[in-house]
Simulated scan of single mutants.
Amino acid sequence: MPPHELSAIANRIRRRDLQAVFEAGAGHIGGEMSVIDLLTVLYFHTMSIDPADPHRDRLVLSKGHTALALYITLSEKGFLPKEEIATFLKHGSRLNGHPNRVKVPGVETNTGPLGHGLPVGVGMAKAAKLDGASWRTFVIVGDGEMQEGSNWEAIMAAAQFGLDNLTLIIDHNRLQQGARLAETNDLAPLAPKLEAFGWAVDDIDGHDIEQICKALSPETITAGRPKCVVANTNKGQGISFMTDNVAWHHKVPNEDQYKQAMAELEGAA
């Protein structure tokens, strides 16, 4: 699928995400907007994801609080009825604030507590190696989440095991709940740290569809080394007053803000 079509899908997912957060009165819209381009490329360009195929690729959305973006992406791929997105966070809905693999088709593992997704992904990738399987494992984490020590233990293990079938994608939007990353525990620059642990690293614009496609391509894999893509993104991407604004970690737009945001996204379609 060409980049302009992927961009159109990403914009459609952003509009539906905005609507769902507004209608539900809750959500994590800032981080959802930053991760949507990455999810779009993974599901519509890079991954083999037929759930009936044991050789399918796996995605672990470790920053599970952005589950809504994943649900909408899955609905665009036919895993869920599109109309079910309207039930997000409602009583009895299976579309909770964090993804549940038992309830939601296409979800590979439950996430929410930060720092768990990458260790699970390392286990998946190691299992594939033991089975001689060719499928790949992708893990998306937030940059604030990289403060968790469990991630760095997993990073060491992945390098030790030579898991070149594992790709870690860091949604590097420079913000976390309530503060900037630099004000909390300044991990940047991330790329040289991963390289020091023996990983192959690409540092890209996480909203440039062509750059994302190239970085996730199997042609860029280095034999015997796990891959990390540091995706430089913007929290609230696509909406002027949300972009790079820490207040929009889980703030909900009022009616006027909703109309403005939707007009901006529709204008970019």
Results as ranks from 00 to 15, higher is better:
Val41Lys: 05
Lys77Gln: 15
Thr40Ala: 07
Leu18Trp: 03
Thr66Glu: 04
Pro81Phe: 11
His91Ala: 15
Arg101His: 15
Pro3Thr: 09
Lys90Arg: 15
Ser75Ile: 09
Asn96Gly: 15
Tyr43Lys: 06
Glu5Val: 05
Thr46Arg: 07
Leu95Asn: 10
Leu61Ser: 05
Ala8Glu: 06
Val35Ser: 07
Val35Met: 05
Pro51Met: 09
His4Tyr: 10
Ala52Val: 09
His91Glu: 15
Leu39Met: 04
Arg16Leu: 01
Asp53Thr: 09
Ile29Lys: 01
Ile13Asp: 01
His45Met: 04
Leu59Asn: 13
Glu32Thr: 03
Arg15Pro: 00
Pro99Gly: 11
Val102Phe: 15
Ser48Pro: 03
Thr66Cys: 10
Leu18Pro: 02
Ala52Arg: 14
Leu89Ala: 13
Ala69Ser: 15
Arg14Phe: 02
Asp50Trp: 02
Leu95Ala: 13
Asn100Gln: 14
Asn100Lys: 15
Leu70His: 08
Gly97Arg: 05
Asp53Gln: 09
Arg56Glu: 14
Glu23Asn: 04
Ala10Phe: 03
Ile49Asp: 11
Arg58Ser: 14
Met47Leu: 07
Lys82Phe: 14
Asp53Tyr: 06
Leu95Asp: 09
Phe79Ser: 12
Ser62Arg: 05
Leu18Gln: 03
Asn100Pro: 08
Leu6Ala: 10
Gly27Phe: 00
His91Arg: 14
Asp17Trp: 04
Val104Trp: 14
Ala67Pro: 04
Leu68Val: 07
Leu89His: 14
Leu42Pro: 06
Glu5Ala: 12
Pro54Ile: 11
Asp50Asn: 14
Pro51Ser: 10
Arg58Pro: 09
Ala8Cys: 04
Gln19Phe: 04
Arg12Gly: 06
Thr87Arg: 12
Pro2Val: 05
Leu39Glu: 05
Ile13Glu: 02
Phe79Ala: 11
Thr87Tyr: 11
Tyr71Trp: 11
Asn11Gly: 06
Leu6Phe: 08
Pro51Gln: 10
Asp37Ser: 09
Pro99Trp: 06
Ser75Ala: 15
Val21Asn: 02
Val41Phe: 01
Lys103Ser: 10
Arg58Met: 12
Pro81Cys: 07
Asn11Arg: 09
Ala67Asn: 04
Val102Cys: 08
Val60Trp: 05
Asn96Ile: 13
Leu68Cys: 08
Pro54Glu: 10
Phe22Cys: 00
Glu5Pro: 05
Gly30Phe: 00
Leu18His: 04
Ile13Tyr: 02
Leu39Asp: 04
Ala26Arg: 00
Ala86Gly: 08
Gly27Cys: 00
Val35Ile: 06
Asn96Asp: 12
Gln19Ile: 03
Asp50Ser: 14
Val102Asn: 14
Asp57Gly: 09
